[in-house]
Design a protein around this nucleic acid. Structure first.
Length: 495
RNA sequence: GACUCCGUAGCUCAGCUGGUAGAGCAGUGCCCUUUUAAGGCAUUGGUCGUGCGUUCGAAUCGCACCGGAGUCACCA
């Protein structure tokens, strides 16, 4: 489809502009400043009173002109209603001046009373029609009968680039975003109710950290220096735990300069929360309770996520990384050499970098053999230390295992949590190891975050922390399998 | 970043073993004061994503580019 305006489209637009001018010439303002919408369409439908005079408004989404009378549907915020317009019930010349010049897409105000048509459809019989906005550009097809859509507007490119059309044309789209808002709202209510404080930390950061990811770079002119868009909130929220805010959370955008696919958008919404005097096991309980509370409040019965029906009301499974990996691979993991792991991965025909650490390789095995099978909600505990530089050693003394969980649902990671590392010397050494490993491939990751280390040296109490990808949570709770369908304006290439 | 598929009127699509375009909806005109994917009659509208090439001739074949989708890589 051409991006350029063409003759055909301009013809359609010009026809509407002609109507607009006619309306103006006859002394009406096609763009008035305000309309007092006394009745919402949802309320009209809910409490039907055939004696009451209603005053409502909406966008015209269907229009059937029949000489001196017309039927049309107007769409409010949630619902639509049919309107019957008849010449001799309207003031003076309104029918000829306004109604004859209406188009699909226009906003009108309607005053009138309710009745049922011969075919028993609840209809507002108009005693007055007020043009509220003239639309001059044609909408997509909106033909529909009994909820069945006939020319579904589902061109992916148009949906995402022109989301306003998607919202007008597809009722379900609006419902997903309403639910998204309710989910986030419920998270806030839940965390606030157990004394967490919501904060905002910097998105523009001189150093980035808290996750493995490539950052976006930007530049501040008067400071004359490079800044990064954050890849995680973690290191700032921990500074707040150190400062004595014992329960703290942030819901905000993180930015990761990586590929785009069904489950990844370059900017995405992250919830992170930290609780002092707590550990990873306590955090798992909080996460499970939080998700179940949302599910209960939003009355979500079962969900279908990536073709799997999932029950969120059952107790979530709890397993350990090594146990579940051995179970799915049917071999002993502990004694595998790095070469042997590479051989296994090569057999699976998966592309993989060379010279990875054993921890990374085990993680790779996990993502190949285990992750797709974790359909029912499952907490996986006890991760290899190399892939968890911010987590505490396992309390039983195991050197190569940390206290961490990831929560999987429908084969995807939903949450990540640690007993947060608060030994400043250990933390510094782990950062140094990361830098040593990274420096060959990633120039940006070479700097040590001394400010964060200094904060840890002041002393951070034992702390549990969690990160949850809100977009993925919304995907799961709305049975959506593409992240673009839960982000209003997903990142797309620009022309 | 790699590979596969896709891009025809405002919208949804057909046409594709090469002979320069069709339908429905929307629009326009006339008729129609309870219709509902309103209806009847008539009618406008497209340099077939962009560019280059093969050919007497390209929406149809080839190459490049621009967008999109899907798989993989990176990753949450």
């Amino acid at each position: 489809m051409s991006n350029k305006e063409n003759k055909a489209l301009n013809q359609l637009i010009n026809v509407r502009i002609d109507k607009l001018n006619k309306i103006k010439e006859r002394g009406y303002n096609p763009y008035p400043h305000i309309f007092v919408k006394e009745d919402k369409i949802v309320d009209i439908i809910k409490n039907i009173d055939e004696k009451k005079k209603y005053k409502t408004a909406g966008r015209i989404i269907s229009l059937r002109k029949m000489g001196k009378a017309s039927f049309l549907h107007i769409l409010g915020s949630k619902e639509k209603i049919q309107v019957y317009v008849k010449t001799d019930l309207l003031p003076d010349s309104i029918y000829d001046d306004i109604v004859r010049n209406l188009d699909l897409g226009d906003f009108i105000g309607v005053e009138g009373t309710l009745f049922y048509t011969r075919t028993k459809e609840l209809t507002l019989q108009a005693s007055n029609i007020i043009l509220l906005t003239k639309s001059i550009r044609p909408l997509p097809n909106l033909k529909e009968k009994d909820g069945k859509v006939f020319f579904a507007f589902d061109d992916k490119e148009l949906k995402y680039r022109k989301r306003y059309l998607d919202l007008i044309a597809n009722k379900k789209v609006k419902e997903v975003f309403i639910k998204r808002s309710q989910i986030v709202n419920n998270i806030r209510i839940f965390l606030n109710s157990i004394d967490f404080l919501e904060v905002e930390t910097p998105i523009l950061q001189p150093l980035y950290g808290g996750a493995f990811a490539k950052p976006f770079e930007t530049y501040h002119n008067s400071l004359d220096r490079k800044l990064y868009l954050r890849i995680a909130d973690e290191l700032y929220l921990k500074r707040l735990i150190i400062g004595g805010i014992e329960r703290v959370y942030e819901i905000g955008k993180d930015f990761r300069n990586e590929g785009i696919d069904r489950t990844h958008n370059p900017e995405f919404t992250m919830l992170e929360f930290y609780k002092a005097y707590s550990d990873v096991y306590d955090m798992a309980n909080i996460v499970e309770t939080m998700i179940k509370t949302i599910v209960k409040n939003l009355k979500i019965e079962t969900i279908n996520f990536n073709d799997n029906n999932i029950n969120l009301n059952k107790e979530f499974n709890r397993v350990t990384f090594y146990d579940i990996l051995e179970k799915h691979m049917s071999i002993s993991i502990k004694d595998l050499s790095i070469d042997e792991i590479y051989k296994i991965i090569n057999v699976k025909d998966v592309k993989i970098e060379e010279n990875l650490s054993k921890g990374k390789l085990l993680d790779k095995l996990f993502s190949i053999f285990v992750e797709p099978n974790l359909i029912e909600p499952t907490f996986v505990f006890d991760y290899p230390i190399e892939i968890s530089p911010l987590a505490k050693h396992k309390r039983d003394g195991a050197k190569d295992i940390v206290e961490r969980f990831e929560l999987f649902v429908g084969g995807y990671e939903l949450a990540n949590s640690f007993s947060e590392l608060n030994d400043p010397i250990d933390q510094k050494n782990r950062f140094l190891e990361q830098i040593a490993e990274k420096s060959s491939s990633d120039e940006n990751m070479k700097q040590l975050d001394n400010d964060f280390l200094e904060a840890i040296e002041i002393g951070m109490p034992p702390t549990g922390g969690v990160g949850i990808g809100i977009d993925r949570l919304v995907m799961m709770l709305t049975s959506t399998n593409n992240i673009k369908d839960v982000i209003l304006f997903p990142t797309l290439k620009t022309f």
